[in-house]
Nucleic acid binder design. Sequence first.
RNA 1: GCAAGAAAGUGAUAGAGUGGAGAGAUUUCCGACGUGAGGAAAGUCCGGGCUCCAUAGGGCAGGAUGCAAGCUAACGGCUUGUGGAGGCGACUCUAAGGAAAGUGCAACAGAAAUAUACCGCCCGAAUUUUUUGGGUAAGGGUGAAAAGGCGAGGUAAGAGCUCACCCGGUGAUAUGGCGACUUAUCACCGCUGUAAACCCCAUCCGGAGCAACACCUGAAUCGAAGAUUAAGCCGGCCCGGCACCUUCGGAGAUUGGUGGCUAGAGGCGUGUGGCGACAUACGUUCGAGAUAGAUUAUCAUCCGCGACAGAACCCGGCUUACGUGAUGCUUAA
Length: 116
Amino acid sequence: MSGFVSLKKNVDFRRLYRRGKTCVTSCVVAYALPNRENVHRLGITAGKKVGGAVSRNRAKRRIRALLSEFLKTEEFGGGRNFDFVIVARARAVNCEHDKLKRDFYNAMRDALGQIK
RNA sequence: GCAAGAAAGUGAUAGAGUGGAGAGAUUUCCGACGUGAGGAAAGUCCGGGCUCCAUAGGGCAGGAUGCAAGCUAACGGCUUGUGGAGGCGACUCUAAGGAAAGUGCAACAGAAAUAUACCGCCCGAAUUUUUUGGGUAAGGGUGAAAAGGCGAGGUAAGAGCUCACCCGGUGAUAUGGCGACUUAUCACCGCUGUAAACCCCAUCCGGAGCAACACCUGAAUCGAAGAUUAAGCCGGCCCGGCACCUUCGGAGAUUGGUGGCUAGAGGCGUGUGGCGACAUACGUUCGAGAUAGAUUAUCAUCCGCGACAGAACCCGGCUUACGUGAUGCUUAA
């Protein structure tokens, strides 16, 4: 995995919700903000609306896999490091992979585009 | 009807964890095992281990349990039985002590709900349409429930008022059984239901939990000692004081790390004992232990088209959820 660590503290989540650049799609909500660390950091939120423990774990796994894929693509230039918070919505559990991937990529492009 | 069990497979690409080496939050390389989610991991309803705290002994309060004998580390669990209920049957269900210790409650209906008299029946009185005093609980009607049932005697009419038989209860004796209980005889009684109302009786129960607990690191801070003048502050300088630095000791925070942590009241097989739960001997077998939390993502193929659902200290149960396929024995037609 081309590296990121997990975002743990509630303070960090609140900072992203308040100041981060955001984009909403039907499957996910993405927040992004450049950080001063030398790694990317990722926090995933899957609330009770998503489902039970099985559903929530599945949503988190799908999103984590997509992000590691995304960080390796050409269009993500690199250079700076970012904090991400991805909120999983109920559809992220069972929808088609293509749709989730399209939504996720759109959300990330949009959020990162706002920063640049 | 019962019992016991399964909980899709294969391949490709990418990734994760674990071990080692470099590197030093990220990351690079190498290797191994083919390694890894449940029957309920769930609900957190009981019980136990383990840890810390409390504890002379006893009682009250509070809570739990409630047919018997057994099994078990223990249990509110399980086994085998007893009584009761259901089913043609295989079989299933049962929170099953006490209402004859006391208190409470019993809507509506009904005359009356633990004590009574609306209609009726009988006797008397007045009036002769009826009214009124008394007796009675056979009959009517109400209700979830109405004074044990039926027959005879008895009576003005009736009534366990008396008697025979039956039904039920309590007690005593005897029979069989370790026991719950069973069967029989005798005596007394005829008493509404409700204890998942209070209550009574018997038995049991200290509290909190792995975010327990132990250790390491040691921020601000306190005390003591020391050291440097080239270096901060106090006035121009020295001394001195404060701060800084070093050492020792105290106290130890949010955070962080390590242990606790997984081989166990374990699984499987065979033998022995037991109707059985289970016990025991021997043999054999095993390996998630994460810490924002891994145990996958995507595609292909296949078919029966994939239910309920995600370990968090560990075990024994209970309860609840669950698509499909399939096994054995038995019952009825």
